[in-house]
């Protein structure tokens, strides 16, 4: 217990240096070419070289918070889906869910980086000299009340049917939003949206096909999809309740008012339900705690556990290089 306690200072996991005078246990693997360590040799800014100038007449703080909302939905949904890795019903679905998770993580990274560029004061402060980039600081060093994802994204995966319903609802709502966001006055948001649209179209079709398959499958799969719909539906309405920041961003031509996509999303889901022989649920929305929802930083108990798992390693090494 003597030496170990001294070694508990956050370690920096830099790539092995083949030029170190002491050498490294990895020397034999390197073959003298450090480019083999493509991952972890350096930080890759997802917006490197992209013009992040804030459009005229747009408040930087509002823009930053708006980007956090879009980013947090993707980040938290991505993390939840990643929990299926090695646990899905079969290998193909395992890979499919991991792919959807990766697409959402990519969207989240770009949006977190855009949030940090729009308003650096949103980024949690870390020890001086910490190499943790702003997007990671936002993902791993904010507390639950600082996250503004819709609560739909944070609830447990449940069984495969619950995951399918959550994925279908989220992809449908996000696709409708991103289709409109392609016309954003913010060039970065417009570019992120244009890319996201292509990805989300695949996600929505994937989830829709599984919804239909489960609903028209066996008695057991039908029972599960019916139960899943009842589980997820209370969190559906919240996706279309605009936060004041979303309203302001829509007014200046940068954001999209989520209330404006509600009808379109309902029509698409009604198509899936009709083909599946399922009634659109008539279930009251989950209450807003003291009028506060996910966008306001009000979250469910499941979210604290998710954050604990997602953030613990990064928080143990606030000066770590990954």
């Amino acid at each position: 217990m003597t030496d170990m306690t001294e070694d508990l200072t956050p370690a920096s996991h830099s790539a092995p240096d083949p030029n170190s005078e002491h050498g490294s246990v990895f020397d034999g693997l390197l073959g003298g070419d450090p480019s083999h360590w493509a991952f972890g040799t350096d930080f890759e800014d997802p917006l490197a070289g992209v013009d992040t100038t804030i459009p005229d007449g747009v408040d930087g703080h509002d823009l930053g918070v708006y980007c956090l909302m879009l980013a947090d939905d993707a980040l938290i949904a991505s993390h939840r889906l990643s929990e299926w890795c090695s646990n899905a019903p079969d290998l193909e679905e395992d890979i499919a869910l991991a792919n959807i998770s990766l697409d959402l993580l990519g969207q989240a990274r770009l949006l977190l980086a855009r949030a940090a560029a729009a308003d650096p004061s949103l980024v949690p402060s870390l020890p001086a000299g910490s190499p943790v980039p702003p997007e990671d600081a936002l993902a791993f060093f904010r507390t639950d009340g600082q996250f503004c994802n819709a609560r739909l994204t944070e609830t447990d995966n449940g069984d495969f049917a619950v995951t399918v319903v959550k994925a279908l609802v989220l992809a449908t709502a996000r696709l409708a939003l991103m289709e409109r966001l392609r016309d954003s006055r913010d060039a970065v948001l417009a570019a992120v949206a244009a890319k996201a649209v292509k990805e989300l179209a695949y996600h929505r079709d994937y989830a829709g096909r599984w919804f239909l398959t489960l609903a028209r499958g066996t008695q057991e799969s039908r029972r599960r999809i019916d139960a899943a719909l009842r589980t997820v539906w209370p969190l559906y309405a919240e996706l279309f309740v605009p936060h004041e920041v979303e309203t302001r961003m829509a007014e200046v031509g940068v954001g999209v008012d989520p209330a404006g996509v509600a009808d379109e999303v309902a029509v698409v889901l009604a198509q899936v339900f009709a083909l599946s022989g399922v009634e659109t649920p008539d279930i009251a929305p989950m209450v807003a705690v003291r009028g506060l929802r996910g966008r306001d930083g009000s979250h469910t108990e499941a979210f604290s556990k998710l954050l604990g798992e997602m953030q613990s390693v990064a928080r143990a090494h606030p000066s770590g290089r990954w």
Partner: peptide
């Protein structure tokens, strides 16, 4: 794709 993990590798190459 937004989450393409090969971006860092391509840049380093």
């Amino acid at each position: 794709y937004s989450g393409c993990p090969a971006m860092a590798s391509m840049r380093d190459d």
